[in-house]
Design a protein around this nucleic acid. Structure first.
Lengths: 249, 249
DNA sequence: TGTTAATTTTGATTCAGATCAATTAAAGCG
DNA sequence: CGCTTTAATTGATCTGAATCAAAATTAACA
């Protein structure tokens, strides 16, 4: 959900750039920059990397050098508990920035795993800090992105602390819906990239509970579920399901 | 928990400064700055503000101008749900920085309320950004603080998503304990500033459940509870209670 | 200091979601 | 393509925490 509103506000999600290396304009960072500034940023954001489905972008404990801007694909971030089970901390899609958590200790605090073949741009953080000194609007924007991540997390905390299963799933679907819409895809029909177990892990529920919640929403004709394919039939009623609110805006 | 390790690592929490306006050295920001740089920062961090117990530092929706560094006291941040109930998103003590969430939209996304008489330093954010351009170590440090907040939130998400009542309370107490220790207070004996209801709101539990969890830990002789006064008798066993985890380090 | 209001504890009951278990469906893969 | 593995659904049962309720304790304040 990171920087959704920014993308949305400036409506840059559809722009295709000719920037050789990385289609910089598609990313979340260049918002509000002029051509010359984009050039400077482009020199920094050079290295492109592909990750196959199931592959790691980074692992917990590995050394932090760069942020990663997702160019395409879909990833999850998760922490490994010592018993081997993993807890999903987020799902991430095109235009979003990964690695913000690692700045604090220069070490990644989670694994980032591709849920489908994905491409990212590597953004060396030291260089980003350096050029942001000369491009105030870039610095300001970067701060907004970090802050937005904090706000997003507070939304998830609220969800986990106060919503029940069905409400959580409704929030989750609405959140995905909005993010797909923002990227030019259908808000009412999409394919999930993650399993029921991963959804459950993210929402603090068991996979059976997630499955039951899907079935319940389908029984009420609010959504149609065909395995990973989701169709939202009545987005207004789905919002009602979410109920009281201040969550995952 | 914000910037705990930084304070800890540099062991500055006990330093009393002669900085006229705000005892700047006690705050989280000046880590690693030289005297001249501290002077520059000091000029920015000028305005001091007292908030009485129960008073608001800022309210949801109000305009964001400044971050607030807590000089003394204890505050909670919370979001108001439309039904009137409030959900606590964090407890904050001396040296911590408030308002990071507001950067994203230039609007505060939560209320900050003093749980005891408190003092904060106002840090105009625009000015902080400006001088951080000329003091790279300040910028770097600020980024670490924001990142640390993200990591902290992930810890809470984990707690809410995967721990049961007693484990949550154990984590909570251990977290408080560590933060008091870091500030030169006892890690084994302290007074809670918040009610059972506020603890419950933060931990995603009802107040009765919190009360029962306290009683349970007391029955096991792990802690001694006298209303708001907590004594940790066996910190090792309290850690065991927390169990598996990657939570709230 | 006495009275009222707020907070905390504890008990009894209920219920949402976890767990256990079995079946069905889909996805990999030789 | 058939075979194996992985994922998803659904049912039955159990359990931890919510809810309802009442008493006890503490804090607020006139």
């Amino acid at each position: 959900m990171l920087n959704d509103t920014l993308l949305h506000h400036l409506d840059i999600s559809h722009i295709r750039s000719s920037c050789a290396t990385c289609s910089l304009r598609e990313l979340c960072l260049p918002v509000g920059l002029n051509d010359q500034e984009i050039q400077v940023l482009g020199d920094v954001v050079s290295h492109k990397r592909k990750i196959q489905r199931g592959g790691y972008l980074h692992r917990t404990g590995s050394n932090f050098q760069s942020l990663f801007a997702i160019r395409s694909g879909f990833l999850k971030t998760c922490v490994l508990e010592e018993d081997g089970r993993q807890q999903v901390t987020g799902f991430h899609m095109t235009g979003e920035l990964l690695g913000l958590d690692a700045i604090s200790t220069d070490t990644h605090t989670c694994d980032a795993i591709a849920l489908e073949d994905s491409e990212v741009c590597e953004i060396p953080f030291a260089k980003l800090e350096e050029i942001s000194r000369t491009i105030p609007s870039l610095m300001r924007h970067f701060h907004k992105i970090m802050s937005r991540e904090i706000v997003r997390d507070h939304g998830v905390m609220l969800l986990l602390g106060s919503m029940k299963a069905e409400e959580r799933l409704a929030s989750f679907l609405l959140n995905l819906s909005r993010r797909f819409l923002m990227r030019g895809y259908s808000e009412s029909e999409f394919n999930l990239r993650m399993t029921r177990e991963e959804i459950g892990s993210y929402l603090g529920l068991k996979l059976e509970t997630v499955s039951r919640a899907f079935s319940k929403l389908q029984d009420e004709n609010i959504i149609t579920v065909d395995n990973k394919h989701i169709q939202i039939n009545d987005i207004a009623r789905l919002r009602l399901k979410m109920g009281n609110s201040s969550c995952i805006t």
